[in-house]
Design a protein around this nucleic acid. Structure first.
Lengths: 244, 244
DNA sequence: CATTGACCCTCACGTTACGTTATACCCTAT
DNA sequence: ATAGGGTATAACGTAACGTGAGGGTCAATG
């Protein structure tokens, strides 16, 4: 089959096929005149390519997946899944912020500047994988759900409580992380957690993850060493263990 | 304030500020030595920029929003919201497909090639706005939800029924759209809808939207004229009116 | 006073996955 | 033979910066 036939068949452009040829992702045979001729085999490969591409893999990743039969596709898929879940909650937050903004524009609800930025700016970062490895994916999802299901006051309290913890961590950050101070922070943390019913601990893993994901936070962590991030993660893990 | 201070404050890179300067999005004063100096005002603007950017607006759009005070922000936000909702359901579909694939890899469930591609490839397209204008956003969301909540057999039936309609439309497409044939198609459509309880009509608006979003479909529509897409939309609208 | 180190500047190329011309060759039907 | 439709390569354009390279500026320090 020639390019256009293939392109029409699967619903992509000729240029796309050219591109895949260029980068060596899908290189068909050619006639003496230089026309690309796609075999049945090529078509199957193409289906695979489009499949993984649709799942959000980059072409480079697709290439690795298809070229290396020993490549762990399951792990790749699971990783991808986590990224997608993260993306989804990011989108969720954006939608919510938009709703708030619209409401506020219509004078229905007041919104402080703080609120405007609340829940935003939690992009992917180098800690994401680590965070998800430590805490698991489903838990974080469930947590987010639960937090979203809380009443406004609950959310408010939770948010304020976290702010206190966060402030304390910021103080810790200013000096070299000191064990005693860390202990104190963790203590305050425990106290705080006590006041938040059954799912507090999960909620905290979720929130913690969000903060670890926060660029501004990690930026500073980078600056002062990664110790603090590890500390946070470990503190959460410790709490999780005790709870169990 | 100088670049690095600002960058650290809001958690972005110096290069980003340079970039915003380059494209005229945020142009601070400069000292005689050429150093960029950001005023309080600039910082506020920057906050606005980051706000809209975080909501997924492109820098060009942000520029338009901020430069033109008469710009309808509400409408822009609502449009953005719709895109985000669409994006979210796309991500949802991807996650589901990944889950299926993983299950199948573990031998738990069989998956046909058809299934592998089911629910995918519904990207944004030129008809999206039109479709959403005609059918509304919430309805489509609800519909998607309902369809997702259906039992497998229901989904199966619905899918098969739609395939029949789709086939008929494809036939229509092969000739010049003919009114009599169109009527017949619509009739079959009605019959089909009858068999699907209360939410069938909404389900169809949802599914219809998905198919209209399908690149392969719209590609062919482009080829044979846009009449068919309009026909589909109108048929849905007509059905909706009768129902009301 | 000169050096150091932290910060600043302006190019300018690299990135992703193609879209979009521009120019020219190939193939088939009339 | 010519027209129409398909094909080829080449090369620039896109968005939002990241990442150096090469070179000034500024304040503190020896």
């Amino acid at each position: 089959m020639k390019v256009k036939e293939v392109a029409d068949l699967v619903g992509i452009s000729v240029r796309t096929l050219h591109h895949y040829d260029e980068i060596g992702l899908l290189t068909p045979e050619t006639t003496e005149a230089g026309y690309r001729i796609y075999s049945e085999n090529d078509l199957e490969t193409l289906q695979q390519i489009l499949f993984f591409k649709e799942l959000g893999f980059s072409l480079k990743e697709v290439q690795r997946i298809l070229e290396d039969p020993a490549f762990d596709r399951k792990e790749a898929l699971e990783l991808q899944r986590r990224m997608l879940v993260e993306k989804r909650s990011h989108v969720d937050r954006m939608i919510k912020t938009i709703d708030k903004t619209i409401k506020q524009m219509m004078g229905e609800v007041e919104m402080t500047n703080e609120e405007k930025f609340e829940g935003m700016n939690f992009d992917h970062n180098p800690y994401e994988e680590e965070a998800r490895r430590r805490w698991g994916d489903k838990k974080i999802d469930e947590t987010n759900k639960k937090v979203r299901g809380m009443s406004k006051e609950e959310q408010q309290n939770l948010s304020e409580g976290w702010d206190r913890i966060y402030t304390r961590l910021a103080k810790l950050r200013d000096g070299a992380p000191d064990l005693a101070e860390a202990q104190e922070a963790i203590h305050e943390w425990y106290e705080f957690l006590k006041n938040f019913g059954d799912y507090s601990y999960e909620a905290f893993r979720g929130l913690g993850q969000m903060y670890v994901d926060d660029k501004r936070f990690t930026k500073n962590i980078d600056k002062y060493g990664e110790g603090l991030a590890v500390f946070m993660c470990d503190a959460m893990a410790v709490y999780a263990d005790r709870k169990a």
